[in-house]
Design a binder for these strands. Structure first.
Lengths: 206, 206
DNA sequence: TGACTTATAGACTACTCGATACATAAGTTC
DNA sequence: GAACTTATGTATCGAGTAGTCTATAAGTCA
């Protein structure tokens, strides 16, 4: 059974993706309704926008959800117990960095850059999914180190949280460096450096 | 000789500092004139604002200059040739991280977070001093590694740019973690981890 | 004192923000 | 066909944006 009523003149799912790119680029507050409307299906009117998405905030939530289900999956390896923990960490770093430098979408990570997306206290709840995602990624890095300790790959005295924070902080910084135009190859080479942190921890006396 | 004309009712230098804190917290675009006016000397009028500072952009420039001359000095060790290069890197990381977590001012680094401060192309020139400062800090880290290589502390085959990017990316990430409320002690411990990157490079075969 | 200089306060400009009312167009269902 | 449902276009809302105009207050200098 087909849907009733006058059909929409634009592709709603495509519109959410376009909105995601705008929010990714400029953040929540700095992306205006005019921008969003202009970039959806070659330009739509205000009532069409509200009929389709409810409000700017609701569209943002959809856009964030869309990001988390697609681009943000580059760090999924952190929760994959079938991958050796060192590989899981390295894979997350390399995949995320590669994605952040890709062309075809804004540079950097929408989740990381979302820190400055809603600077006022009233808007904290809007970016809550981004905050939660950052927290989850940090936990993912820590988890991999803990898994390596449990497996006996890393010594028991290894400080999992400190190591996790090191990897995570590096990755957060990549968003800013990618925005500043640092080459993907340079960032990838620095991951090779960073992974030595893991290797030296392996050699540490028990 | 005293200054002519009606005296200002607020401390101009203090006002620049207050503006700096606001821009630091919310970024350039997201800090409104109303906020700035309300937070200067217990509240000033619009004409007073423009008489004293010229425009929002000019005040921002002064605020950035103020930041660079004060808080941003935490990384000065990177250019101090009297400090051994490893110490210079560690000092920059620890001082900056400590500063970013201090109370009494916004969390994180104004320069790092400035990436999202002016998301539109027309505003690129406004945040240019911040962009330049980020570039300079990256060069500072690379420079320390190069200095260590020249001194024979690190092997000649060390990739200075990769190592520099690793340290710098970590430090950029600290701004986001500090905003997310990660403890200063946890960040400091992760610096201890990160510095092992240097020590393993020292042990590398020539 | 009077001329000069500077800062102040209140009112106002043109513009953009997110969001809404109302009438109409374009489909499906009966 | 008529009833129903949904999307669209025009016009508009009140609030907030950065910034300006005009008049006045408060100081220094001769």
């Amino acid at each position: 059974m087909a849907k009733m009523g006058r059909p929409r003149t634009f592709d709603r799912q495509k519109a959410v993706m376009q909105a995601m790119h705008l929010f990714w680029e400029h953040g929540y507050e700095m992306t205006s309704l005019s921008q969003l409307k202009a970039n959806i299906g070659g330009g739509i009117s205000t009532p069409s926008f509200y009929a389709a998405f409810g409000s700017k905030e609701e569209l943002f939530n959809e856009a964030v959800q869309c990001y988390l289900e697609t681009y943000a999956c580059v760090t999924d390896s952190l929760w994959d117990d079938e991958i050796p923990p060192r590989d899981a960490v390295e894979l997350a770093l390399r995949r995320s960095t590669k994605m952040q430098c890709e062309s075809g979408h804004p540079k950097g990570c929408m989740v990381s850059l979302g820190t400055m997306s809603a600077p006022t206290p009233e808007l904290t709840h809007v970016v809550e999914p981004l905050t939660a995602s950052r927290s989850r990624t940090l936990q993912g890095f820590v988890r991999c180190v803990e898994r390596a300790i449990a497996m006996g790959e890393l010594p028991k005295k290894t400080n999992a949280r400190s190591m996790g924070i090191s990897f995570n902080s590096f990755l957060l910084g990549v968003s800013i460096l990618a925005r500043d135009g640092v080459d993907a190859s340079d960032l990838d080479a620095s991951i090779t450096e960073l992974m030595k942190l893991w290797d030296i921890a392996v050699c540490q006396p028990k």
